[in-house]
Simulated assay, not measured.
Amino acid sequence: MSVTPCGFTRTPEQGLARLRWADGGWAVEGPGREEQELHALRGLEVEWPAEQVPLGGLLRLAAAGIPLTAESAAPWVPAELAALLTDRDWLGHAADGTPRSLADLRREEHSVRLRRLAHPTGRPKISIVMSTKRPGMVGAALARMERQRDVEAEVLLGLHGVAFEQVRAAVEGCSLPVAWVEAEASVPFGEVLNRAAAQASGDYLAKWDDDDWYGPRHLADLFMALSYAGADVVGTTAEFFYLEPLRATIRRTTFASGASYPSEVWADHIAGGTIMLPLPKFQEIGGFPGLPRAVDLEFLKAAQQAGARIYRTHGLGYVLRRGLSDEHTWQLPLAHFLKVAANQWRGFRPSLLMEAA
């Protein structure tokens, strides 16, 4: 397992500290701190030495999720890293304690961008499996899959009580390979997913929900987390919700009980629409349970019973759509989401990492 951002803290308790080159290595100014203690900082301000020095220690901190910044970059710093370090827009947001505050979110977005640079990955072959009862959603869902970067993707479409003719135009207009199966509406949801997943040819299987939004690096970020954590199953937090009847976006960082709901942790709960794992592990677990509801929950239980380790990464590239409770397999009233909201904004206001998906 490589360096990971496990333990990332959304709301820092301390301000910026200085990061300097001293005695042949990068060191944080002040009393000696363990790497995990640095998560309590808002970030580290880099001070460059006059001479060129190795960047490995600095990149290790970026890989650990520590936000790094610099007023300028030394001429020998690679351009991509220099651009990230000198992008200080995130520092312009003050934590004012209001539901509309963006300070913590912008800081975490900056951290994720640095992680991506510090954890380079290849282009994995990923089979995206999606079951739908809503033909009108298929075109938009396929378009979001097409936007995925740094992966080689194929689509496995389960048409649940939907005839192929209803989605033919969307499927034939998709630039990705699409395999599809038709199933009667009476077939359990989990079984439809399994019939679609049986056609997978990728190395990894990723579950996708037809009505949610996914940022263009959603799959690449999942693969990055799977790689650095050494996990068997990975997924994101269910953190951002767009409440359609209210035309509002909320972000939750706690459970309804008030317990913390962190990212970058080993966990038994991940967002069902973001489950990803190696295809052989999926087959070893036995596929999705053939149930009409609670498929994700029961799959994760089965994964744990099979000894799989589950890792929850950041949820900034994923937004769940919520309408009236009877429209979703996960049935909770809108009042529940307002209760758990740490942030609330009018309109569709996802993370910047969604790139206005």
Rank of each mutant, 00 (worst) to 15 (best):
M276P: 03
A302Y: 09
V340Q: 07
F288Y: 15
T313Q: 07
A306V: 04
Q305N: 13
T313Y: 05
K339W: 01
G323F: 01
P292F: 11
G273R: 01
W330A: 13
Q331M: 06
F337M: 02
D296V: 08
Y311T: 04
L320N: 09
S325G: 00
T313D: 06
G272C: 04
G290I: 10
D296E: 15
A308H: 03
F288T: 14
Q305W: 10
W330E: 11
V319I: 05
M276N: 05
L300K: 07
L316M: 14
R293E: 15
Q283V: 10
A271D: 06
T329F: 10
M276D: 09
L300E: 05
I310S: 04
G317F: 01
P280M: 01
Q304V: 11
T313L: 08
A302E: 10
H328W: 04
R321F: 00
L338N: 04
F282D: 07
K339G: 02
G287Q: 12
T274E: 00
A302W: 09
L324P: 01
P278L: 06
R322F: 01
T313N: 11
S325T: 05
Q283P: 06
P292Y: 12
T329L: 07
F288E: 14
A306C: 04
A306M: 02
T329G: 07
Q331Y: 03
Q305L: 13
P289S: 09
L297I: 12
Y318I: 06
P278D: 09
L332N: 11
I310A: 03
A294E: 15
T329D: 04
P278E: 13
E327H: 03
A335P: 02
L297P: 01
H328Q: 05
K281F: 06
L338E: 09
L291I: 13
Q331K: 13
K281S: 13
G286C: 13
L324W: 04
A308C: 15
F337T: 01
G272Y: 07
E284I: 03
Q304G: 15
R293G: 08
R312S: 08
Q283G: 03
L279P: 00
P280G: 03
V340N: 06
R322S: 00
G290R: 15
L334Y: 01
G273E: 01
K281H: 12
L316I: 12
E327F: 07
G287V: 13
P289T: 14
K301V: 14
F337Q: 02
Y311A: 01
F282A: 07
F288S: 14
E327M: 11
W330T: 11
E298A: 14
K339C: 03
L320Y: 02
Y318A: 03
P289Q: 07
D296Q: 11
A303H: 09
K301R: 15
I285H: 04
V340D: 05
G287H: 13
A303R: 09
L324E: 08
R322E: 03
L332I: 02
T274H: 01
A303Q: 08
D326W: 10
Q305A: 14
A308Q: 13
L316F: 14
A302S: 15
A306P: 00
G273W: 00
Q305K: 14
P292A: 12
L338K: 05
V319T: 00
G287R: 12
L332S: 10
